[in-house]
Structures are given as structure tokens and as C-alpha cells.
Design a binder for these strands. Structure first.
Ligand code: FES
Ligand code: FES
Lengths: 146, 146
DNA sequence: ATAATAAAAGACAATTGTGTCTTTTATTAA
DNA sequence: TTAATAAAAGACACAATTGTCTTTTATTAT
């Protein structure tokens, strides 16, 4: 469904939202520990998110990643678009060059419904709403080890 | 959503269903022309489908690919499982090692609904029902060139 | 039997996605 | 002003996916 980059990006953003603020920023090592993701690869992905103004970052001592109030309200669909583009939201399910009513693939009708639902799900899920589940203890970003 | 292999596999299977029979088999070159897919790569993918008894093949003169009556009724989900496995049908949307109620990701609830709908769509779409659209002229497997 | 045919199989090549390591740049505490 | 810090950036390395080409095997018409 989503690429690894996108999965890490979403998990990282949610963690940052839940565990950091302008005052208490989260570092890349801390983030990767808590979402069980490869460090340098995730660092690159976070660069994409910062370039797209989905997360904020600060270099230097006491630096790290955090979200502004406005960024907290952003939908997960923004992260998907930034990392994977919009093929999932607009493209043909059977891989035709474009999805169109004029020359629809045999799955077009049914797939169009599903695709719209995926889009809606991601548009209606804000980063902060996901983080809220985390803080309430009924949301996880990695397997808990005991 | 689906891999290229899966997309080609579905398109090929639908074409074979629509355009061939035990008496008039479709050759790989013919198939690839009509679904706009790379020839040798698609040949490999069709080997996977024949090994999984989703399509039938015959070597030699007048050989080619075709579907038995029973194979025609198979759902597209069988093709997805054969080419991409079952991650799309069972896996976690955010890439956790497994999807579980005990340690759900923050998207688990919403994603579970969508995932079930994707599964249902593919299980309820038979190869022959897709081929029917093709034959009626309101289904395409490649961009028509003029 | 022989030749023609077409899928199966195997060996590679190119591309993309994923992951690692090192160097650079910006920031701030001391 | 200096040293420590942490993200940004760049250079690779590895793996998986996608795609191409050649050889082999099975089948059938002649
Ligand atoms: S043409 Fe395939 S989904 Fe619209
Ligand atoms: S745990 Fe992520 S979808 Fe179920």
C-alpha cells in the first residue's frame, strides 16, 4: 500500500507530535528507537518532511524535530503525497497510464470507490489525532519488547 | 497498491479470458501487445499463474494460454496472492511487523475497514466478470492509440 | 522422423527502493 | 570565541523489482 519511506514518515511524524514540542524537541536517534526504523534512512525522510513544511527542525544543541500547532493539524495524506506522490490517490488500480472515464480499466468502477475511501481516510486523519491514541495507550508505533 | 507484476498478471488474465479458449489459445506476443506489457517479463509472470493453476498453458504448435471454465470463475484476489502475497490483505498499514488488536497502530481501526473492502473487492471480482466488460466495450487493458 | 512452434527456464542487466556511513553546516551553551 | 551538538547533505552499498535476451523443453503438424 504505502512505501517503507512513507510508513516511516507517518510513524515518525506521529511520534514527534506525541513526544515533543517547541520546548522539548525530539532527536533522530530517539525517534528511530521508538518507531523501530533505520536511523540514517529515516533522517533522510524527515528531511523531505521538513522541506515540505510538514515537520519543523532545529539544528545544534537542544535541536531536534517538533511540530507547530498548525503542523499538528495536518492530515496524513500530506505525508503520503510528499513521500509517495499521488498515484495512490489518482492512479489506475491496474496500472493503466491514467485513470479515466473514457477508457476505464475493468476494475475502474469498484476501484474508484475504494481509492476515494483511502484518500478520505488519510485526509481525515490528522497527525495530532493519531498522536492522541498513542498518548492514551491504545496506539503503537513499534512492537513492544518484553 | 499492487506491484507491476500483479498489474500485468491481472491484465493478462483478463485478456486471456476474453480472447481465448481451449480451441483458440492466446500467445504471449499477442497478449503483451494487447495489454501493453513487456514481453519476457510478462511471460515469467504467466509462469507463476500457470504454476498456481490460475491459467492453463500449452506448449508447441497452436499452443498458448487459455482458461478452463473453472479458472474463469476465479477471483482476482487469487492473482494478487500469487504475485504479491497476502500483506495487502492482512498486513499493518503503517508497516508494523504484524497487525493485531493487542498492539494496534494508530491507523488500525480505520485501515482495517479499508483493507477488508479491498479484500472483498478482489474476492468478488472474477476474471470472467472483468472480461465481460472488455467484450462489451466498456473496459480497457491499455491506452487505445489512434 | 523432422521441422516448426510456443511456453518454460535460466542468465543477466537496468532501475528503483532501502539502508549505511561520512562530512558539512547551523546553532547554542559555556 | 570555542566546543559540543544535531540536523542537512552527499557518497556509497545492498537488495528487490522490473525488464531483456538466450537456451531448453514439450508439442504437433507435416
Ligand atoms: S482506469 Fe483503472 S481505475 Fe480508473
Ligand atoms: S496494526 Fe496497523 S493496521 Fe492493524
Amino acid at each position: 500500500m504505502f512505501s517503507k519511506s512513507c510508513e516511516y514518515a507517518i510513524r515518525a511524524a506521529i511520534y514527534i507530535s506525541a513526544e515533543s514540542s517547541k520546548e522539548k524537541k525530539a532527536g533522530i536517534a530517539d525517534i528511530c528507537d521508538h518507531i523501530e526504523a533505520p536511523r540514517h534512512f529515516t533522517a533522510k525522510i524527515l528531511q523531505i518532511l521538513t522541506r515540505n513544511k510538514i515537520v519543523s527542525s532545529q539544528k545544534g544543541v537542544n535541536g531536534g524535530f517538533y511540530l507547530t500547532k498548525e503542523q499538528n493539524t495536518k492530515p496524513l495524506s500530506d505525508i503520503v503525497s510528499a513521500t509517495d506522490g499521488n498515484v495512490l490517490f489518482n492512479g489506475c488500480g491496474l496500472g493503466l497510464k491514467e485513470c479515466s472515464e473514457e477508457e476505464p480499466c475493468p476494475l475502474h468502477e469498484k476501484f474508484g470507490v475504494i481509492r476515494a475511501e483511502i484518500k478520505r481516510m488519510m485526509e481525515e486523519s490528522s497527525i495530532e489525532s493519531m498522536a492522541k491514541k498513542l498518548k492514551k495507550g491504545n496506539g503503537f508505533l513499534r512492537a513492544e519488547v518484553f
